[in-house]
Design a protein around this nucleic acid. Sequence first.
RNA 1: GGCCCUAUGGUCAAGCGGUUAAGACAUCGCCCUUUCACGGCGGUAACGGGGGUUCGAUUCCCCCUAGGGUCACCA
Length: 547
Amino acid sequence: MDNKKLAGLLFPNIDKTPEYYEEKYPERGLEKGAMVTRLAPSPTGFIHLGNLFGAVVDERLASQSGGVFILRIEDTDAKREVEGAVELTISTMKHFGIEFTEGATSEGETGEYGPYRQRQRKDIYQAFAKYLVEQGKAYPCFCTEQDLEDIREQQKEAKIDFGYYGEWAKHRDMPLEEIEKNLAEGKEYVLRFRSEGKKDNYVKVLDGIRGEIEVPENIQDVVILKSDGIPTYHFAHAIDDHLMRVTHVVRAEEWLSTLPIHVQLFDALGFDKPLYCHTAQLMKVDNGNKRKLSKRKDPELGLDYYRQEGYTVDAVWEYLLTILNSNYEAWRDKNPDADRREFKFTTDKMTKSGTLFDIMKLNNISKDVIAKMTAEQVYEGLSGWAKEYDEGFHDVISRAEDKTIKILNMGRNAKKPRKDIVTWSQCKEFIKYFYNEYFEVLDEYPGIPQDKIKKILTEYIDTYNHADEKNDWFEKVKVITESAGYTTNTKEYKEDPEKFGGSIIEVTTIIRIALTGKANAPDIWEIQQILGKEDTMKRMQDALNKL
RNA sequence: GGCCCUAUGGUCAAGCGGUUAAGACAUCGCCCUUUCACGGCGGUAACGGGGGUUCGAUUCCCCCUAGGGUCACCA
């Protein structure tokens, strides 16, 4: 077989050689230890929490080592591409605090190792493909989809491994004349890699997360160029990550099974392999079973969900770092106020088993993050969220900015600040009773008899003085409590509930519900001060009227 | 089904041959408290099973089991 001739036949217009590209994209000459990572999403229009999960690893590794973080668009599958997906990816990543130092941008791209959109790299791939053909390491395969299906059927029946390999690789040794004839007839073909792998041979690969792993050699003659001349993932990965001089390939565990193909390709092309870091999958419980997060089934795991709910970027990062690096949480405990970038992120502290996504933990972290913010910062966050997702609410708080900041400041400056707020949307639910636009009278007072409620509310209204200091106000509440036959001593009440029928808790609960429409709200006196005399009295009166 | 990965409480997880098997979230109880919270203290709760190796295995090896992943001209 004249491989040179075949290569010329297959790629008549490719005149560049691998050497040319090696020179064009030289070693980066970064400082020792600097890592080059990349995020390589395909533009399908759906950005998953898993994408962020991996991106955080890439970003930390590159950033803390003074390296490079590339955004490369894997758009080799035109069928699945969604318009505007690249922009969406970039803007979403940016929103979540992921910034790239090189690669695709919304306007074009930046960096010397481009193009960064794979479809624009067609000539590069073909130059290397041509080289492989010349070496006799790749060949055209004219099998139709039907042919492949038939092979699969037979293999299924014979209960042997599926795929295009060994005796099943029908076109592996097609004579040059026949290839020429097929080509002349305009038959479509794909380019396959000629595997010399043996099923029983194993290769050792060092994984940054898993340590040394052993994988069997690949025996399949995988497709490296599709019939449109565009590479498959495997081939593009080898060429791109080598030419872009990527040092660490961080990708999900699901790629582990194709690792043998990649090892084989790198070796055949004479490339040094990057350090692979196969991350554990983010999982979810479904019907009592763990399973991989899926874009199809789990829309709530899409990144825009967190944006919509109003999770802070900091909270998401804290959570992700917590599940990503097992020693992050302990570090955070010791350094509660340190910038997270001061934490030294390492791949060997990453978990190997699939992590169940735990919204409770995220919520807990989120509360802590917001509890540490100033009222002004909280206002900024809330307002920014509302502007995008709840215009009506945005109008309301904008008109009452000072009041809103006062509200958000309640219980915030204590040594042990309150932790009421999880997300911005939940924050709205928590404070909206302050605004008459949203306030609703609640006429349910759990377990308290009507006449008592009436009596307590009436007395409260009669004795209320907005100018009272907190202590004076409270003394009056005590008087009302006793006048209702309840006790002001909650301990005493707990010891013998029958004796009093109720305690000061009942009284404050009634006042709180009348005032806020909720059983869970901060300090009553403070709420009244913010609400003002008029609204306070009106709400009390309305509550009484509603009985 | 073949191949690969994984395996400590409900969840996330320390541990890397000898420990009373950490910690966090969740949960429960108590305390603090004028309410709601915050907080403090404490409780319940784990090494999947079977073989080895060893004086000694949660830890190392093998098998089983379970869960997950993957077997495309998708990435």
